[in-house]
């Protein structure tokens, strides 16, 4: 099967800082992958490159065989690190907006998830707490039938109960041929749902393996391993 993400020697430099230095990576279909690394390691930069929000300095990046562009935006559902929703809109208006924009958006699923988290569809984004706004954003992103979900810190601001709901939403909803790439540093919470983990540090990939391999070989959780590898 074709890899959903394939990149070779990917380099991205910002003034005074090398964000990614030579990243090689393949992500096949049907996987849930954790992109783990300390703050400033290049996680968000990588996701932005996949979305075409940033352009690489050199190297090659293909999403389902295409360079990032209109075609790839159709197949990627992206949860950015910060909110981009219009805060004067209410949830119902946001859903209509997404429905118009993405042909693969499933309205019924969005309303079902809202009901399960007791979020009122008439509430405006502006009057919501940070956690609720994050939940709405994730519901919008997960209601698409995409090939590739790129989730940048999806559980950072929500309480542990909602975190479980969100993770279950991810396992229960992603398309079996599609893949999910989750960037986070809340490793203990996500490692049970991951197939593979990628450790990234200073713009380089330092480890890429399956969760069960790590546990079997190291006799410790991915969370423990992360604390060892990135000890300050």
């Amino acid at each position: 099967m074709q890899n959903l993400i394939e990149c070779r020697d990917l380099v991205k430099t910002f003034p005074g800082c090398q964000a990614l230095c030579g990243v090689n990576l393949q992500i096949p279909g049907g996987r849930i992958v954790g992109l783990l690394g300390p703050n400033g390691s290049g996680k968000s930069t990588f996701l932005k490159l996949c979305n075409g929000l940033l352009v690489p300095d050199s190297g090659e990046l293909l999403i389902c065989g295409h360079a990032p562009g209109v075609e790839t935006k159709k197949v990627i559902s992206y949860l950015p690190e910060r909110s981009y929703l219009n805060d004067w809109m209410n949830v119902r208006q946001m859903i209509r907006f997404f429905e118009d924009f993405y042909p693969d958006f499933e309205t019924a699923r969005a309303y079902d998830m809202l009901a399960r988290l007791s979020i009122n569809p008439s509430q405006r984004m502006k009057t919501m707490s940070k956690g609720t706004r994050e939940k709405v954003q994730l519901i919008l992103v997960m209601s698409r039938r995409a090939q590739l979900y790129l989730l940048d810190e999806p559980i950072g601001g929500v309480d542990p109960a909602a975190r479980d709901f969100i993770l279950n939403t991810i396992i229960g909803n992603y398309n079996p041929e599609g893949s999910v790439l989750i960037s986070t540093h809340l490793i203990a919470d996500v490692e049970q749902v991951l197939d593979d983990v990628i450790f990234i540090n200073n713009g380089r990939i330092v480890l890429c393996d399956s969760v069960d391999n790590i546990r079997a070989q190291q006799d410790k959780s991915v969370d423990m391993l992360f604390r060892e590898v990135f000890r300050c």
Binding site: G30, R31, D164, I171, P176, Q192, V193, D195, D212
Partner: peptide
């Protein structure tokens, strides 16, 4: 079963 156990379906 995967959702019930909160684990990855492949696992």
């Amino acid at each position: 079963l995967a959702v019930e156990a909160s684990v990855n379906p492949n696992t």
